[in-house]
Simulated scan of single mutants.
Amino acid sequence: MTAPLPALPPLREVIARHGLTASKALGQNFLFDEQLLDRIAAIPGSLRSEQVLEVGPGPGGLTRALLRAGAHVTAIEMDRRCLPALAELGEAFPGQLRVIEGDAMKVDPGITGPFHVVANLPYNVGTALFIGWLAGEAWPPAWRSLTLMFQEEVARRIVAEPDTGAYGRLAVLAQWRARPRLALKVHRSAFTPPPKVMSAIVHVVPGDAPEGVSMRTLERVTEAAFGQRRKMLRQSLKGVPGALDALTTLGIDPQRRAETLSIEEFCAIARVIG
Rank of each mutant, 00 (worst) to 15 (best):
K24D: 07
G58P: 03
R80E: 13
P84Y: 05
N29D: 05
V117Q: 09
L37C: 04
V202W: 00
K106S: 09
Q51R: 05
P210R: 12
R271T: 13
A225D: 09
L129I: 02
A142T: 09
P114E: 08
E88M: 08
G274A: 05
A42E: 12
P6H: 15
A224C: 10
A104W: 01
G239N: 15
H203L: 08
H187L: 11
I252A: 09
Q96V: 10
Q35H: 13
P162S: 01
G274Y: 11
A258I: 06
N120W: 05
G102W: 07
N29Y: 09
F32K: 00
Q228E: 14
L36A: 05
I40Y: 03
T192Q: 13
A200S: 06
T74D: 00
H203K: 07
H116Y: 11
L47W: 00
E265S: 08
K231L: 14
D38C: 08
D245K: 10
G207D: 03
E259K: 14
V118A: 12
G239S: 11
P84D: 01
Y167T: 06
T217I: 08
I269R: 07
K24G: 12
Q51H: 05
G27M: 07
S262T: 12
C267M: 11
L47I: 11
T248Q: 12
L237H: 09
G27Q: 08
A166F: 12
A42G: 09
V52R: 10
A92I: 14
E137G: 13
R156H: 08
E211M: 11
D208Q: 14
I269W: 04
S236N: 08
G227V: 05
P122D: 01
P10T: 11
A41P: 11
I76R: 00
K196V: 12
R220P: 14
I100L: 07
G19D: 11
L233K: 10
V99K: 00
G110K: 07
L97Y: 01
A71T: 08
L261S: 03
V154M: 04
A119L: 01
G165M: 15
P114C: 10
E77V: 02
T63I: 13
A183R: 01
A42P: 14
R188K: 13
V172L: 03
L11T: 05
L146H: 03
F32G: 01
A16H: 08
T74W: 04
F93V: 15
E219D: 14
G165A: 10
G60L: 02
D33M: 02
D33C: 00
M232K: 12
R177N: 04
L11A: 11
L97N: 00
L37R: 00
L36H: 04
L20M: 04
G56N: 04
T21S: 15
R157I: 01
A41K: 10
C82K: 04
V186I: 15
F30L: 00
L218S: 10
K24W: 10
E34M: 14
P195S: 07
G212H: 07
S262A: 15
A92G: 09
F266S: 13
W143E: 03
P109V: 01
I269C: 05
A183D: 03
R169P: 04
I76G: 00
E13Y: 06
G242K: 06
L20H: 04
G110S: 07
P141S: 08
V172W: 02
G56A: 00
V202D: 00
E91F: 14
D253L: 11
G102T: 03
T222W: 07
L37G: 02
E101Y: 02
R256K: 11
P10D: 04
P59H: 10
A71Q: 11
